[in-house]
């Protein structure tokens, strides 16, 4: 899923300075699963903003909504009947959802209420970790199912580097070395011959480096 963290409330209040009536829009997709932008978070954030604004002597009216998904046009359309009745939309969906709203509602300012993070997993309740950078050319079959692009701090294809120590990466004591994990997995899968092959330079053109990406599937149109 796409993960994120709430923006500091001070930052949100500052963004809201010019406005007195807003829509606060959550999303039932990824951000609900990672507890940063679902219905419940909409309620908490709306209360927080109202309290803060009222305490500062300038009330704000907030319409609380939660869309099925902010990244699909049909759900975004549900806001059309009322969106222009408000001065701005504060969205706590991921950056993709927020932008999609912005694209569809050209006359309404869109404000981000979360900092979108990474493609990750719930390692345990309340803890999420990155797993994939969407490089567009997956190599997991060669690396024991562990991503060198994401889980090695230097995205090396022939790791580990000299900074790997007792399974820990040089960047920090709570960062596991991705290459140690790859090697452990390859060993247990009996695939160490994958390790000792020289790998071609990665083509980053399928990644963000090739410019904004688009997928067109004729069979789905």
């Amino acid at each position: 899923m796409i993960t994120g963290t709430p923006k500091p409330i001070e930052e949100i209040l500052q963004m809201l300075e010019p406005y007195d009536t807003i829509i606060l829009a959550g999303c039932y997709g990824c951000v609900t699963v990672c507890r940063v932008g679902g219905e419940k978070e909409v309620e908490i954030l709306a209360s927080t903003i109202r309290l803060a604004r009222e305490a500062s002597g300038r009330k704000i009216a907030i319409r609380e909504v939660c869309l099925e998904r902010q990244c699909d046009p049909e759900y975004i359309e549900t806001m059309r009947p009322y969106v222009e009745d408000y001065q701005a939309v504060l969205s706590i969906a991921c950056g993709a959802g927020i932008q999609f709203l912005a694209e569809k509602y050209m006359l309404t300012p869109l404000l981000p209420g979360i900092n979108t993070g990474f493609l990750g997993v719930t390692e345990r309740q309340g803890e999420w970790a990155e797993r994939c950078q969407g490089c567009g050319d997956c190599v997991l079959h060669l690396t024991g199912g562990i991503c060198p692009v994401t889980r090695c701090a230097k995205s090396l294809f022939h790791g580990p580097c000299g900074g790997s120590s007792k399974g820990i990466c040089e960047v920090g004591k709570d960062v596991p070395c991705g290459w140690q994990m790859i090697i452990d997995r390859l060993k247990s899968l009996n695939q160490m011959d994958n390790y000792s092959k020289l790998k071609p330079y990665k083509g980053w053109n399928t990644s963000r480096d090739g410019g904004p990406r688009r997928i067109v599937r004729e069979d789905m149109i």
Binding site: P8, I9, L13, T48, L51, A52, A55, S56
Partner: peptide, 8 residues
């Protein structure tokens, strides 16, 4: 924490 940040 929220109450603290918003001055309540």
């Amino acid at each position: 924490r929220i109450l603290e940040t918003i001055g309540i």
